[in-house]
């Protein structure tokens, strides 16, 4: 798999602001590094502590399952890990990059270049065809239109939807929409895939199909973090952590605290 890295030719390359990467091996071993992560929401009443001092290290190429009950902080964790929500305290590093130390709009650039998001309810744009939805992350990227299109068609083919590229999301089944969402996440060839309950709206047969696709992506070397409360799919993960009340149940996995 070819990751989009700091050497990308994209218009908004992160290269100028990236810190020097650690040695290759060290970098791979600590691909995702979370230290003392806290997130508190200030509501109308008392502040709600969604994350309470999380520490986690995920090596490159892992398929990490983040499990837990509703309200345990799974989605908040994924949002913070995905550069969508600033933590109240702590640090998140991906591939050596301190996400929340990035200046200005570089966090948006990071999401575009480093992450592929797969949302629970697909979150496809309803007025764009499957192909256009897949092209969406490339819309703000400077590259030849033909190249964009070829890449989008390639990933649509990869998820088995080459013949459905002109269909609007409303004309696709739930499983097909999920696969379009996965293709959209893959189109930038990101180093990290984040999936938020991707099987939440699917029947068991389609869930299996989708999870086989994720497993294949994992076998190809993709790093995947998937939030789910579905125990049935636990077997696909090579690592699992459980969140409870904003903490990793049982503390951080052995050997990761330091």
């Amino acid at each position: 798999m070819t990751h989009v890295t700091a050497q990308t030719g994209a218009e908004d390359s992160l290269a100028p602001v990236l810190p020097s990467s650690p040695a290759q091996e060290e970098r791979a071993a600590r691909f995702i590094e979370v230290r003392g992560l806290e997130k508190t929401f200030a509501g109308d009443g008392a502040p709600v502590q969604a994350l309470r001092g999380l520490d986690l290290v995920v090596p490159e190429g892992s398929f990490l399952g983040v499990m837990g009950q509703s309200g345990s902080g799974k989605s908040t964790f994924l949002a913070v890990l995905g550069g969508l929500s600033h933590p109240s305290a702590g640090e998140v590093r991906v591939d050596g990059i301190d996400l929340y130390g990035l200046p200005g709009e570089r966090l948006a650039d990071f999401r575009r270049e480093y992450l592929g998001f797969v949302f629970q309810s697909f979150n496809l744009v309803p007025y764009l065809t499957a192909l256009e939805n897949v092209l969406l992350p490339l819309a703000v990227k400077r590259m030849p239109a033909a190249e964009k299109r070829a890449r989008a068609i390639e990933v649509l083919g990869r998820v088995g939807l080459a013949d459905r590229s002109r269909h609007l999301p409303g004309k696709l089944s739930g499983g097909e929409q999920e696969r379009v969402a996965i293709a959209r996440a893959l189109v930038n060839d990101p180093p990290l895939l984040l999936a938020d309950e991707p099987t939440g709206a699917l029947d068991s047969e389609t869930t299996t199909e989708v999870m086989e696709l994720f497993a294949e992506l994992h076998r190809e070397g993709n790093t995947i973090v998937m939030v789910t409360h579905n125990l049935e799919i636990r077997r696909y993960f090579d690592r699992t952590v459980v969140l409870k009340d904003g903490r990793l149940e049982g503390g951080p996995p052995a050997g990761e605290a330091g």
Partner: peptide, 14 residues
């Protein structure tokens, strides 16, 4: 929808 755009890496200016 705008949240999706932002999540996919659209800048505020985009």
């Amino acid at each position: 929808e705008i949240g999706i755009f932002r999540a996919l890496g659209f800048r505020r200016s985009h």
